[in-house]
């Protein structure tokens, strides 16, 4: 059956990313199985949990990035939250006693960077604002709850609470009714 070719020569189809994902997927899978086995066999601290979380971070942030809404703000929020969890895991499972001080510093640093990304181009980034609003609100509430729960209140927690609170109020003031319509869209059940 002969036929006439009516499609152009296409750019060499890039299978590189597909191959990279497959190779890394196998390596990650091997590591995800091997680490807990070795950890259980050798005993000691549960370091394999940290390895598993780090693998998951790289997988979801780099190799299998989200298919919907992958933008600077949403990826920044994901990176910040995941880094916070990683630090808490290291604190809890390996070397305890510093996370209550370091995590708020990392968190307010991340909030400042995200705020800069948002305020530099409000007209474009207002479409991506929801992850920022949620993480800001969570950070403000979280830091206040932590201050009330812990007997010892440190300055990074206070700075985080203030930064998150100011950022949240500024976002609400700038977006006003648009924030409400954004909430309506995000939580619709139609």
């Amino acid at each position: 059956m002969d036929f006439e070719v009516i499609y152009p020569n296409i750019k060499k189809t890039s299978l590189a990313m597909l191959r990279v994902r497959t190779v890394f997927g196998l390596i990650f899978l091997a590591a995800a199985v091997a680490c807990p086995v070795v950890n259980i066999a050798v005993g000691g601290k549960a370091w394999s949990v940290i390895v598993l979380w780090a693998l998951y971070m790289i997988w979801t942030l780099v190799l299998k990035a989200p298919l919907v809404e992958r933008n600077l703000i949403s990826q920044g929020v994901r990176l910040s939250v995941m880094t916070g969890i990683l630090l808490i895991l290291i604190d809890r499972l390996l070397y305890p006693g510093w996370a209550a001080f370091v995590v708020p510093i990392v968190a307010y640093g991340a909030l400042i960077v995200l705020a800069i990304l948002f305020f530099v181009n409000v007209s474009k980034q207002r479409h991506n604002v929801m992850p920022l609003v949620i993480v800001t609100l969570a950070a403000a509430i979280g830091s206040v709850v932590a201050m009330l729960a812990f007997s010892e209140v440190n300055w990074p927690m206070i700075v985080l609470a203030v930064t998150a609170g100011v950022l949240f109020i500024a976002t609400v003031l700038i977006l006003r009714t648009r924030l409400i319509s954004e909430i309506v869209k995000r939580f619709h059940m139609k």
Binding site: R70, H127, N128
Partner: peptide, 17 residues
């Protein structure tokens, strides 16, 4: 756009707008 990929190639719907 001029055709440069296979027909019905995935559309990158992830970025802003």
């Amino acid at each position: 756009e001029p055709e440069s990929t296979v027909p019905c190639a995935d559309i990158n719907v992830s970025f802003t707008g």
